[in-house]
Design a protein around this nucleic acid. Structure first.
Lengths: 155, 155
DNA sequence: TATTGTTATACTCTATAACTATA
DNA sequence: TATAGTTATAGAGTATAACAATA
């Protein structure tokens, strides 16, 4: 009768109070925000955040400006601007779509792949140092938490 | 002989390979970023991010524009502008410093306290719903992880 | 006529440099 | 002369509206 509520019941069955859930949620949200903030501030900014985001999308697959604007929740003209800057920096390549000549296919250049790898390496480095200083038990907790948080974020 | 390295040794003793630490760090960093992003996008934007940040600083203690600019890593004029917007919205109060009349003391208004409470309540709500859907075991993992992550972020 | 993408224009947040008031 | 803060001006990023090219 209540298949959609199956997952909520699991927690409710243990009698975890709503206020305890709320407190945990608040702490966890803050912890994630602080980690993100630290990583962002400590890492060098080779490309701006919105540019980095676009590069990541193009890494998944070549896309049109419209698709990128839709995914990134920005206007068409904004994406035109962002893409133009990336093209000028030699990180994105434009190709005319032979099937529909109104469209443009955007893709990463080899230089962009190198840049992305470099950015991630540096970001991971900050976190690696700190995770490396934890006890094995703490690392194990984080390993499990990582999987749970990823699932929650992708819900 | 190696007291400063005591904490690093704890992990090293268990033989956790550098690449495993690196992989965990990368996953964790991404998970935290995604959670932050979702919370930010799903929550209504009553005040802009930089304004919210300033309100949080003033909640800790009244400060001068210079102090805020220093803490937030922005220029003086930028902070002047941000503060002016908050004053205009009735969220920040200006007081002349009687000891040094060049300075201005900024503090939160009662309205700001209400706004901050409201923002946090809504942000926690997004996270609460999701945490509430997890199993007690998963919630326990997150409770432990939350403490560890908070410590890491504040290091 | 509808769609893809760009250009035109304006608003916001950022910065550096120059200015005012106080110490 | 040095410091706290503001004003002046310019550079990014965002948006909406109007336009060009193609379907």
């Amino acid at each position: 009768m209540t298949p959609p509520r199956a997952r909520s019941r699991r927690a409710a069955d243990a009698g975890l109070s709503p206020s305890a859930v709320s407190a945990l949620a608040g702490e966890l949200r803050l912890a994630c925000m602080r980690i993100s903030r630290r990583v962002r501030f400590e890492s060098p900014h080779v490309v701006a955040p919105h540019q980095f985001s676009v590069l990541c999308r193009l890494e998944e697959a070549p896309r049109t400006p419209s698709e990128l604007a839709e995914i990134e929740k920005v206007s068409g003209p904004s994406m035109t601007r962002t893409v133009a800057a990336l093209v000028e920096r030699g990180l994105v390549a434009r190709t005319d779509d032979p099937a529909d000549r109104r469209q443009v296919i955007l893709s990463l250049t080899p230089a962009a792949t190198t840049v992305l790898k470099d950015i991630r390496r540096k970001r991971d480095a900050w976190m690696s140092v700190r995770v490396g200083h934890l006890t094995p038990a703490e690392q194990d907790v984080l390993r499990q938490a990582s999987a749970i948080l990823t699932r929650v974020a992708n819900e």
